[in-house]
Design a protein around this nucleic acid. Structure first.
Lengths: 217, 217
DNA sequence: TGATAATTTGACCGGTTGGTAAAAACATAC
DNA sequence: GTATGTTTTTACCAACCGGTCAAATTATCA
């Protein structure tokens, strides 16, 4: 009897781990650029270099692959915001948050697009995660920001929209990559665009929030 | 002989115009939330309240509907940037550009999501539009911004990334609407969120670009 | 080595999908 | 009325899609 995913040995074999990883990597490729419904198992199988039934031996359904990817992604997604430290000072905390998020757009664009796709379609698979853990985390960090404002370390502003604007501007470079490249043209669309973006965003947010500037009482 | 779309009369009849409009509206609904491949003709037909073959009498293929929507959308999409006036002053021009883009996110979220979907999938249908007309327009406006900076009316910054950041922050409220609502919670997710966003973004960009502030020579 | 379990394959299935054909139903002009 | 052109419907098809099954192949280990 061939029960998938090694029910007998319980411990996953080397070959299982490798194949599952290859499948998830291929699936991330396809899902992130075609969305859930736009992706076929055959496409994933082809990218992963195996037959469809073989792939389905490791993941029983298309949904199972997608679910696994979303779970992994959400975890790393919340990570930078977790690191936001109430005891740090606003300047370095916000600055490094922006930098980290931008690095994620540069290094994990597929994950960003997978997330964007999911949200665009109305977040059918992760609505609970958004309303639960994500909201809780943002609420917590918004409170931190509010405290900084009260302490006069930051310009008065809506903490939620501040967070939204950091998400939007940084993820833009992953999600709208094609557009960014098209507009910048070949000459400026190299890897340097991320450093340019970092410089610009730092300036925008730092002086936009009047961090380190004591003008206007 | 029944040639679709009135080849004989040449002029489109009232009934044709109405039906085509209904189809496009329904298609915008479905395409914007499911992407091209994720959308079925049957879904569009059902939302439009007609049978699939009847729908295909007005648009011969799924692609034809999609193409029509994208063309229309691109036109209105570039409109606010067109309005960017070199002879105006930076403060009011940028301020009103942000306001307009945000209004578009509020009033035409489906169009925004249609565009986002297309870009996410690598812009297969509009790559030429991006590299041609869009790039040309942005190049032109970037030059305007550069001139403002040279004239000391604006903080020194990369004009392209300035434009990107306005796109990103404003469109975020349409494309990531589900997430925004989830995070804000029921209490704050009403229509007022757009006014909050407008206030916040105005502050961010106005003081971020040091418009009207003469600190630091 | 052989026995046993894990992996891979090819053939297949029912449902869906984009799209067609032809004729029925409807509108319009004379 | 009838003739002509337009719109809608019914029935259909071939390709595709997610997933199953049983048999064949390969790895593991006593």
């Amino acid at each position: 009897m061939a029960v998938p995913r090694a029910a007998k040995t319980q411990r996953r074999t080397r070959i299982q781990e490798e194949k599952e990883e290859r499948i998830l990597d291929a699936a991330l490729d396809v899902f992130s650029s075609s969305g859930f419904r736009g992706t076929t198992i055959d496409q994933i199988a082809e990218v992963a270099g195996m037959s469809k039934p073989n792939l389905l031996y490791y993941f029983r359904t298309k949904e199972a692959i997608h679910r696994t990817l979303l779970e992994r992604m959400l975890f790393t997604w919340l990570d930078p915001l977790q690191a936001f430290d109430a005891d740090g000072d606003p300047e370095s905390e916000i600055r490094s948050y922006i930098r980290r998020k931008l690095e994620m757009s540069r290094d994990f664009p597929r994950e960003s697009r997978l997330f964007a796709n999911e949200i665009l379609q109305g977040a059918p698979h992760i609505e609970d995660e958004l309303k639960g853990p994500l909201k809780a985390l943002v609420d917590e960090k918004a409170e931190v920001i509010r405290a900084w404002i009260k302490a006069g370390k930051l310009a008065r502003c809506d903490p939620y929209h501040l967070i939204f604007s950091i998400w939007a501007t940084t993820q833009h470079y992953a999600d709208f990559d094609v557009q960014v490249r098209a507009v910048l043209g070949e000459r400026r669309a190299g890897e340097g665009r991320f450093e340019d973006a970092a410089r610009y965003l730092e300036q925008l947010f730092m002086s936009g929030l009047k961090i380190g500037i004591q003008s206007e009482p």
